[in-house]
Design a protein around this nucleic acid. Sequence first.
DNA 1: TACTAGTAGTTAGTAACACCAAGTAGTTAG
DNA 2: CTAACTACTTGGTGTTACTAACTACTAGTA
Lengths: 114, 114
Amino acid sequence: MGKQMTEMLKGTLEGIVLALLTGKAAYGYEITTLLRDQGFTDIAEGTVYALLVRIEQKGLVDVEKRPSEKGPPRKVYSLNGQGRQELEEFWRTWSFLAERIAQLHITDHIKGEK
Amino acid sequence: MGKQMTEMLKGTLEGIVLALLTGKAAYGYEITTLLRDQGFTDIAEGTVYALLVRIEQKGLVDVEKRPSEKGPPRKVYSLNGQGRQELEEFWRTWSFLAERIAQLHITDHIKGEK
DNA sequence: TACTAGTAGTTAGTAACACCAAGTAGTTAG
DNA sequence: CTAACTACTTGGTGTTACTAACTACTAGTA
């Protein structure tokens, strides 16, 4: 993946994962494949697991260990109240940034056509 | 500023500054006030200067030192060919990410209304 | 004169985060 | 018994925005 994407994911990947967990608990491996399905094909596995440890330590998710039919036990993560709050905050921050950048994009187009 | 915004700016702030430089050269102090005007009220001055040094070293901008009427000399930055290329790449990366996150936002809304 | 505020840029150190590489461990198919 | 898939862990790296302090020049004011 480009270096730009790597840097851009900082701060957004956490929100993306929290969003994926809305309404549906999931475990790490599952989340990784979900991300790949959504087009984030190059996100490193280790990155996802590290992120999950982090949001667990921040108290944004509840964790339950469940046996798997085909492999080691899974750690199933579900969004809790604090996580939902954090996600809302994420959407606010993201919207703010996205709006301003969209504005810049438009302005650049105008300049480019002059 | 929130910690979320700080992390989110990683990887996007550079693109934002390159976008600001499209069609119009500017110096550091000016860029900082431009950013503040655009709503990024809490971006630290030091951050902008450090970023400018970085994009100069990456060869994305040309620099010209000009005396100022009211203070120390200014370093005026203008986007060069490589910078324009990098900016295009930025828009591609950003669009990709923004689209996917927008999709997630919609999905979350639907889930939330169930 | 000395002091403040505004302008303009620099430097050193910190924290957060995504990355890579390598490893452990369980199951299933050849 | 070996490979491939599932599932998670650990240790170390590079990039980036942050803070805080500093230099330096000008203009206005007490």
